[in-house]
């Protein structure tokens, strides 16, 4: 699989480490959310067959986190964005 890195162009997926569903960006507030929300965040997954937005870390490269949109049935990679941009657009960070 080649991941179209937004800064570096096409990179071999082997250079990356996989974390999982990009929903992991949306970590609940530790003091306000409660244990159920944290359980769901940590342990439950949608696990779709089809398009999946997921976090890949470019460990053997520029060490950026990407949000890659990939089809879990065909392995086709549709899009790669900087996770930073995605997180900021969702209102994470200050």
């Amino acid at each position: 699989m080649l991941i179209p890195h937004p800064l570096l162009g096409p990179r071999d997926a082997q250079e990356f480490v996989y974390l999982g569903d990009a929903a992991l960006i949306d970590r609940p507030d530790g003091t306000a959310a409660g244990i159920e929300a944290f359980h769901d965040y940590l342990y439950l997954r949608d696990n779709p067959a089809g398009q999946h937005r997921e976090l890949w870390y470019h460990e053997q490269g520029d060490r950026s986190w990407l949000v890659v949109t990939r089809d879990t049935v065909t392995h086709e990679i549709l899009k790669a964005e900087l996770a930073r941009d995605v997180a900021l657009a969702r209102g994470r960070g200050r």
Partner: peptide
């Protein structure tokens, strides 16, 4: 392989 998949086939690495 290490990434979510329903493909019943993996990759060369």
């Amino acid at each position: 392989d290490g990434y979510n998949s329903y493909a019943q086939r993996g990759n060369l690495p």
